[in-house]
Amino acid sequence: MNHLEVRGVGKTFGKEAVLKGIHFELPFGKSLAILGPSGVGKSTLLKILCGMEEADTGRILLNGNPVENWPIAKRKMIYLHQHPVLLPHLNVAQNILFSLKATEWPEAKKQDQLHYWLEQTGLKGHESKLPNQLSGGQKQRVALARAMIFEPEIILMDEPFHALDHYLKEQLMEELKALFLREKMSSIIVTHDPQEALKWADHFAWLSEEGLVQYKDQEAFIADPKTGVHRQINFWNQYQKS
């Protein structure tokens, strides 16, 4: 059984059909990268999955159960924005614990989990800092720690590394990839960058106005000319030769 199955999801804004008959599957503990040109509804698809937007058609199955009528929180699919969304008046620890406001966990468990996730995301020692005292990478870690402490089923990431510089992006990606593998966390990442997708994901999909194509493996993804990966690899090969 797959962790997530999306069957024929469609969404229309006014007269414009943004998503048409989207199908894909995500196995347990794996990550899926969704690529595609701007404006084809990649972010909308993630918002539909987590329940922030409603699909007009189709089914979403989480662990085999249809979740279309579930409240947002019950789906436990956490959406991470492109720019980390932190509450400016709360410090790092309070921001992380914010996701547990609606839960009835005992305080001791909350504190245990807080210390665990501070450790895991490399934020130990920054607990009392306010968001405006953090770097872009640290802010993204806080957003991730806040999502992870909530014990989500799936993390949905909308270009999470887009606003970071190259070196920070590489470092953060490596750390988070290791963390996701350790925690066996299923994730979906939306990105414009095929290299980022190749580094992060195990499964690949291409979303365009015609719909979504899920590749059977990495080779198929690389070989498809519309993804642009093959072109990039050729360019680097020629560059190295010259």
């Binding site: 987590c50 329940g51 922030m52 409240p71 947002i72 929180a73 019950k74 956490i78 959406y79 924005h81 720019h83 969304v85 509450l87 008046h89 914010f98 996701s99 547990l100 406001k101 609606a102 839960t103 909530f150």
Partner: peptide
């Protein structure tokens, strides 16, 4: 709007969103 969406994502009630996000 993004913060409110985040609050909804974590299951906060309308009152909690007003008190913990909008009011501050």
């Amino acid at each position: 709007r993004s913060i409110v969406q985040m609050g909804l994502n974590f299951g906060l009630s309308s009152f909690q969103i007003l008190r913990c996000i909008i009011w501050p």
